[in-house]
Each structure stands twice: as structure tokens, then as C-alpha cells.
């Protein structure tokens, strides 16, 4: 989940709301394809078969999946307007992208202090104990035209809202 390096220090405008992914739990069917496509999108080859079966390292998804009986849903970073994680980050590895308003993460800057994990009220950041750094956090697929989980949810349980809270469809950009 690499962000653009030089952007991290610039103050972002307060009233710029980022796009936001929203999950409607009443339509989640528990297939977990959101995770599959998140992993694929963030892999080197962007190809699902290569990402899962090839030799390249398989990334973690930026999604926490919860399931209890017939209720399930996927949770990812909400790119909050006023993110508690930004306040807690000791190194500035978590930063807000000036253009999109999204909360991004520079893996090389992270020292694994776990302050973000302590602060995120959604528990959306995954610790990567092996590499002593925050492991995975949704970046709204900045490098793709549309977030992979939204584009591939078979039941449209995951949708994308634009800056004004209106639903965006794949060909809207």
C-alpha cells in the first residue's frame, strides 16, 4: 500500500471529503470475494491466478471480514474526515493524500508502534507482526479506476459514495 512520498507533509483542505466505501450488511452474502479481489488488485501481477498460485508474495487484504450466523460484512478503512489514526502516527507514515483526501500509508516509514491500531475505532488496520509494521489498510485502490471490492461484489453490497455522498458506479469516472 505505497503512497506518494512527497505528498505526506502537505496540509489537506478540511472540507475536501474523500470518496467512501460503504457496506450494506443486508446484502452481504458472505462469499468473501471482496478480499480475493482486494488481494489481487494489490498484488504484483494484478491477476488472480498468479496472485494466488504464482510465486509472487501474496499481499494481505485491507478488509476485515466479520460473520455471525446469516449476518456478515466486510469492513475497511473509512478514510474518516478526522482520522484518529493520523493523530497517533508517530512517524507520519499515515498521511492524508492532498488530491483525493484519502488516508494513505507509507510502509517504509512505519516502525510498528501500533498506535494506529490502538486508535482506529473500526479496528481497520491490520498489524503485520512478521515485518513489524502496520500490515494492510484500504487505500481505495488509488491506482485503479475503481475500488476492486466495489467493482466485484456480486450482490452490490459494497458501494462507493462520492464526495457528496452520492453513489458512484463503475463507469462514472
Amino acid at each position: 500500500m505505497q503512497g506518494k512520498h512527497g505528498e505526506m507533509n502537505k496540509t489537506s483542505k478540511k472540507n475536501m471529503k474523500p470518496r467512501r466505501i460503504v457496506l450494506r450488511e443486508e446484502y452481504c452474502i458472505g462469499c468473501r470475494l471482496c478480499e480475493v479481489h482486494c488481494i489481487t488488485q494489490h498484488s504484483m501481477s494484478r491477476n488472480i491466478i498468479k496472485a494466488y498460485r504464482g510465486t509472487e508474495p501474496r499481499p494481505e487484504s485491507g478488509i476485515y471480514f466479520e460473520e455471525s450466523g446469516p449476518v456478515s460484512f466486510a469492513l475497511q478503512c473509512r478514510h474518516c474526515d478526522d482520522p484518529p489514526c493520523l493523530y497517533s502516527c508517530l512517524t507520519g507514515a499515515l498521511y492524508r493524500d492532498r488530491k483525493s483526501g484519502q488516508v494513505l500509508y507509507n510502509k517504509d516509514k512505519c516502525v510498528g508502534c501500533w498506535m494506529c491500531i490502538m486508535s482506529c475505532p473500526l479496528g481497520a488496520i491490520k498489524p503485520d507482526f512478521k515485518n513489524q509494521r502496520a500490515g494492510s489498510k484500504c487505500d481505495l485502490c488509488l491506482e485503479a479506476e475503481f475500488p476492486a471490492c466495489v467493482a466485484n461484489c456480486p450482490n452490490e453490497a459494497i458501494i462507493l459514495l462520492d464526495e457528496n455522498g452520492q453513489r458512484m458506479l463503475k463507469n462514472d469516472d
Binding site: 452474502i29 458472505g30 462469499c31 468473501r32 470475494l33 480475493v36 488472480i48 491466478i49 496472485a51 494466488y52 498460485r53
Partner: peptide
């Protein structure tokens, strides 16, 4: 088959 288990779940 990438063993994502979507078929198993649904």
C-alpha cells in the same frame, strides 16, 4: 481454482 472458497461458502 485459487481455493478462495467462495463456492464452499455460498
Amino acid at each position: 481454482c485459487v481455493k478462495c472458497q467462495a463456492c464452499v461458502r455460498v
